[in-house]
Design a protein around this nucleic acid. Sequence first.
RNA 1: GGGGCGGUAGCUCAGCUGGUUAGAGCACGGGACUCAUAAUCCCUUGGUCGCGGGUUCGAGCCCCGCCCGCCCUACCA
Length: 532
Amino acid sequence: MSAETFYVTTPIYYVNDAPHIGHGYTTVMGDIITRWHRQRGEKVWYTTGTDEHGEKVLRKAQANGVTPQEWVDKLVEEEWRPLLRTIDAANDDFTRTTDLRHLEGAQAFWTALNERGAVYQGSFTGWYSVGSEEFVGDDDVVDGEGDDEGIKVSKLDGSRVELISEDNYFFRLSDYQQKLLDFYEANPTFIQPESARNEVISFVSRGLRDLSISRSTFDWGIPVPWDADHIFYVWIEALLSYATSVGYGSDRERFDEVWPASIHLVGKDIARFHAVIWPAMLMAAGEHVPHRVFAHGWLLVGGQKMSKSKANGIRPDELVDTFGSDAYRYYFARALTFGSDGSISWEDINARYHAELANGFGNLASRVAAMIGKYFGGTLPASGEHTDAELTVVDTVVDAVRDADAAIEAVAPQDALAAIWRIVDELNGYITSQEPWKVAKTAASGEGNAGDRLATILNTTAEGLRVLAVVLNPVMPKASAVLWESLGAEAALGALADQRIDAVAAWGQLPAGTTVTKPASLFPRIETAPTA
RNA sequence: GGGGCGGUAGCUCAGCUGGUUAGAGCACGGGACUCAUAAUCCCUUGGUCGCGGGUUCGAGCCCCGCCCGCCCUACCA
């Protein structure tokens, strides 16, 4: 049997939204996790993309005087693809729900469900607000007062609503209540974290209603293959991107190779769609359900949820312009607990940038390269006998790499970075306690074995940096590449991306004689901080 | 209304199935050092663990009530 593909997805982002740091956050987390798994030597596939159908897109396009296709093409090229470049994402695919493969795959999927009897025609009745142009839930409809006396109005915005019904196709979601509950029970890690799992189970336990899957009042969507008057409801169609982008409906062999998804990363607001509707759809189709749905929390700015409608957004490109994509990636992975809400601020990013990246890591690389340059002419010396101090360094590295790997496995990048930073701290402490600058003076006077001792200290720190370059590569590929280059590691050990996590902690890989050069500052101090 | 989650040092957060003097990082204060990006290393200061009851030999962790914040409660996505 062939090795399973580690297949990760971000949500298929709604194209009408302006990309903000929330989107960047999710995509970066997936990128870090998939880059790490690639360096474990696994087959990996990482997909992101855009959801481009629906009434809102249609309206927006009309308002802009262009066709919906022209509108989404523009958004994808001008907003969404640039975001990926900004944050240095290494996704394997960018899937669009307007892609032909998706249209055909989605139609094939629902044709199959229809043939299996999971779909029926019925009528959907609901309160429709002409003013806000949307259906309003029963609980949000109240009796009007004053001018609206005798009329039902929406509690949300006060607009008048009328009861209308529409012929629709329905998916027999109600058939899956018990099947889903049994599934959650048998697969406790299917929905994570625990808070999302509890919520989903509680939601399903209260009962599931059949789901309307088509619309006939507008036409920007994928046609229902057996009834040209209907298009599919966006959600029911967009979720299928995860399958159609890896061959469902077009390349069965490819699909079987990649599916099921290992992890769907989602925001906690859409956990329900991914943990309830999506697996039920797949069960109905007789396909495997994903291994895991991981719901992350919100980014809070000034205690408020980061959102497109509020002006509290910190723009990804603004952040990257100031601190760089590496720092952006590092910050979100390190400062937040993936799965919980977390606070971010310009001040905090700035503080961590300087304390952890510039002073901690960048300066470490700088001082080691400077000493190898000054004391050994830029040629890496061979290590002599290890003393307890070196053994402690080696132990710290081995433990840290092991812990970081376990943390990534547990979808906890923040813990992985905390573990990796033990190496940074250990090396800085090791250098200070070994005082190589003093050993160098002794060596210069020709006393004892000081020269050998100095060589051992600098060889050890260089080895530590070698490990850091490898394990930080998934998080900060640019800085890691510079460090790898400065260690002269490429010539001796090959490409950084080919360095395996499971072998990285083995000591003594950098051969003596390698040319070490002092790199430009990995993370130069930044004097001015723009207003957020 | 119902359900879920959270409220721990100035800030951001850890605290496993309840167990000795509640932890980390940053910030602050003091000291050491000079290889380095005025960086590094060491030490100190700092908490009625939202509030009020209860269970227990013992509770930040369990139970009850209350206050505050966020999320979900299916057809905007």
